[in-house]
Computed example of a mutant assay.
Amino acid sequence: MPLTLPTGNAICYSGYRDGQSPGDKIYPSLDEIREDLAILRRHWTLLRLYDCSPHAERVLQVIEEDGLPFQVMLGAYLGAEVSNPGCPWGADFTDAELAASRAENQAEVGRLITLANRYPGIVFSVAVGNEATVDWTDHLVPVPSMIAHVRRVKAAVRQPVTFCENYVPWQDKLRPLVPELDFISVHTYPLWEYKPIGEALAYTQANIASVARCHPGKPIVITEAGWCTHSNGRGMHAAHAVQPLQATYIAELTAWTRAEGLLCFVFEAFDEAWKGSPDPLEPEKHWGLFTADRQPKLAMRPLYPDLVAQA
């Protein structure tokens, strides 16, 4: 049967606020999630969640209990199953650490299956891992292991199954995985590759086209595309990481993907202080369309004038 995915505005949602983080296992409360979803439901109907932690469970619980009009791409976070000397910030693990990580991956995949089956009317697809095969990842999973995880999930859920990754591995390394998937999920970040705003959309289009050429006929979804608003210069030109350019890129990206009928999850809903280095200008912290205190950035102000008035 041909694949049918929902349509509509889509966004990546990770609701960790100041003082919260998945690493510390301090999760947003039900009330905080309700506050976030009240904001997001005004413009988006599709959410992407990254793992099967208590955060994700609470999001699904709130959507069901409150009858909210969201559908969810639910993810499983897969940790390192091998060391990766190619990771710039270090990914050299002991045998014991890797064994523990592999065991946790099995448990996480089990949670993915459980939640997908518990919420069949909310979870419209499942993603088995995120950026776990690209050369620079600190949570490297070999492709044969990824295939095994995907096969386990496909045998146990009714939803379409995918894997979310940077556009580069899809062109070669992930060819053995593609036949196992119902659709390909691609990440594209012109800003991380030093592209100015005048070249950004064309670069995103080229990224997607490069994957499509390698896998003709395979459906493609953009599961991350966005623009940072503060930076210390790590991995990008700091002068490009500003709100007006985010607003321009998001507007251009949305217009193009809508015209093409291409499902695209904007990265991301809210800034997250826990990410990256302690530097407050660490770019990983500043990809939200809203600040960490839930104020709309420039790209969102026309849609949320009431929230701007409260600033």
Results as ranks from 00 to 15, higher is better:
residue 66 D to G: 13
residue 47 L to Y: 09
residue 141 V to T: 11
residue 66 D to S: 15
residue 111 R to C: 07
residue 161 V to P: 09
residue 90 G to N: 12
residue 49 L to I: 09
residue 216 P to L: 05
residue 271 D to R: 05
residue 98 L to F: 13
residue 245 L to R: 03
residue 166 N to E: 07
residue 185 S to P: 07
residue 145 S to V: 04
residue 64 E to H: 13
residue 128 V to E: 13
residue 169 P to Y: 03
residue 280 P to I: 00
residue 307 L to E: 06
residue 36 D to Y: 01
residue 288 G to Y: 03
residue 137 T to C: 06
residue 184 I to R: 01
residue 149 H to A: 08
residue 186 V to F: 02
residue 169 P to F: 07
residue 268 E to H: 04
residue 76 A to H: 12
residue 81 E to I: 03
residue 81 E to Q: 13
residue 149 H to M: 10
residue 109 V to E: 04
residue 281 L to H: 13
residue 301 R to G: 08
residue 288 G to D: 04
residue 91 A to V: 06
residue 87 C to H: 10
residue 190 P to M: 00
residue 145 S to D: 12
residue 97 E to L: 07
residue 188 T to K: 04
residue 272 E to R: 05
residue 30 L to F: 09
residue 279 D to T: 04
residue 74 L to I: 09
residue 200 A to Y: 00
residue 164 C to H: 12
residue 67 G to Y: 08
residue 235 G to L: 01
residue 89 W to S: 15
residue 72 V to Q: 05
residue 38 A to T: 14
residue 36 D to F: 01
residue 212 A to P: 11
residue 55 H to G: 08
residue 172 D to I: 03
residue 152 R to D: 10
residue 170 W to E: 08
residue 146 M to I: 05
residue 150 V to F: 02
residue 1 M to R: 14
residue 38 A to N: 15
residue 71 Q to I: 06
residue 104 E to R: 13
residue 210 S to M: 03
residue 113 I to S: 05
residue 37 L to R: 09
residue 231 S to T: 04
residue 279 D to R: 06
residue 118 R to C: 07
residue 178 V to D: 11
residue 167 Y to T: 07
residue 155 A to Y: 04
residue 30 L to H: 11
residue 271 D to A: 08
residue 88 P to K: 07
residue 157 V to K: 08
residue 232 N to S: 13
residue 171 Q to T: 15
residue 220 I to S: 12
residue 30 L to T: 15
residue 12 C to H: 12
residue 164 C to K: 06
residue 203 Y to A: 10
residue 171 Q to W: 02
residue 298 L to A: 14
residue 9 N to V: 08
residue 70 F to T: 11
residue 232 N to P: 12
residue 109 V to T: 06
residue 158 R to N: 15
residue 38 A to E: 13
residue 130 N to I: 00
residue 71 Q to E: 14
residue 36 D to W: 00
residue 97 E to I: 02
residue 297 K to F: 01
residue 153 V to A: 11
residue 174 L to W: 01
residue 4 T to W: 10
residue 251 A to H: 02
residue 155 A to K: 13
residue 283 P to T: 05
residue 234 R to W: 14
residue 50 Y to E: 02
residue 108 E to N: 15
